[in-house]
């Protein structure tokens, strides 16, 4: 049964298949371990997906970035409308609404609860205002600034305000979440190492007799450790694939309701699932953590098993 492999390669193949076979022979406990690992891996992945989706979704909301252009109080409505008209011709502007001082006051009366108090005013103190929605290709800080100075340059304009505070705040929240993701990944990664390390430790204790005999006939620590390292790698790999499956099906289940929700905001946003890059990262992470847990555990516990005849 020559596989055309060097004996070194063949030994690795043997050890790998032996480890795989052993895991397959106790499917229930293997599955339990995989679930624990998958849960630890799926949490950072879920957080990552949340941050990604939140970012993409608010990219769609960015037309919520408005400029409010307040005219001086002595500027007549006709002048404001004429200026708005000329501004509409400018690039980088999606829409301009003219809010007259009267409309603003009426709205203020209706919503502020100061209706009665405002009744004693005999002149409207509010100015006419333009609500400017930048075009979606003009949302960068630089083009917003250009728009601001365009309006500010008009002599009739009192002040221009960019209503982007909530976007800034939202981005700050995302940044906090991203940090949280890193912390969660570190903690849960350590958890994966511990879970796999402990599983390997139990496996080593279970197979103590076999290990002793292998050492008696001249098996090196490296030889004895090899199948346990493969077991660790397989646990990590299996856990990663399971985590990916969990994340993908969670996204699948959320897709329809999220789309419905987005439609109520007039958005056609759809959820983004885990990408191929996420999968690669997840697998690499799982494999490395699995190997590390197994290595730490096997190196520590195999040394204590010395054959006694």
């Amino acid at each position: 049964m020559s596989l055309g492999l060097t004996s070194y390669g063949a030994r690795h193949v043997q050890a790998f298949l032996a480890s795989l076979g052993r895991l397959a022979r106790s499917p229930f406990s293997t599955f339990l371990t995989l679930i624990v690992i998958a849960l630890a891996l799926v949490l950072p992945l879920g957080l990552e997906l949340f941050v990604t989706n939140a970012r993409l979704a608010t990219g769609g909301f960015a037309n919520a970035i408005d400029l409010s252009v307040y005219f001086k109080t002595d500027v007549p409505l006709a002048k404001a409308e004429q200026l708005a008209k000329s501004a509409r011709a400018r690039a980088g502007i999606a829409q301009i609404d003219v809010i007259s001082a009267d409309a603003a006051l009426a709205e203020f009366r209706a919503y502020s609860g100061f209706g009665a108090a405002l009744g004693v005013l005999n002149a409207n103190p509010l100015p006419h205002v333009l609500h400017v929605h930048p075009a979606s290709d003009a949302e960068s800080a630089a083009s917003l600034e250009a728009l601001r100075s365009y309006f500010a340059a008009w002599p009739e304009v009192d002040v221009v305000q960019i209503d982007a505070q909530w976007v800034t705040r939202f981005n700050a929240i995302l940044e906090v979440l991203r940090r949280l993701l890193v912390i969660a990944a570190a903690i849960l990664g350590a958890g994966v190492v511990a879970v796999i390390g402990n599983t390997i430790r139990l496996e080593i204790l279970n197979r103590r007799g076999e290990i002793e005999v292998t050492k008696i006939v001249g098996g090196s620590n490296g030889f004895v450790r090899r199948p346990f390292l493969y077991a660790g790698i397989l646990y990590g790999l299996g856990g990663a694939l399971l985590a990916w499956g969990i994340a993908a099906s969670a996204i699948g289940m959320l897709a329809a309701p999220v789309a419905t929700l987005a439609r109520t905001y007039g958005s056609r946003y759809t959820l983004v699932g885990p990408t191929a890059q996420d999968l690669v990262l997840l697998i690499a992470g799982g494999v490395i953590l699995g190997w590390l847990g197994a290595w730490l555990s096997a190196t520590r516990h195999l040394r204590s098993i010395e054959p006694r005849a």
């Binding site: 049964m1 020559s2 004996s7 063949a10 006939v217 090196s220």
Partner: peptide, 8 residues
């Protein structure tokens, strides 16, 4: 096996 003998 521990000595790395070829399978055949």
């Amino acid at each position: 096996v521990v000595a790395g003998t070829p399978l055949k």
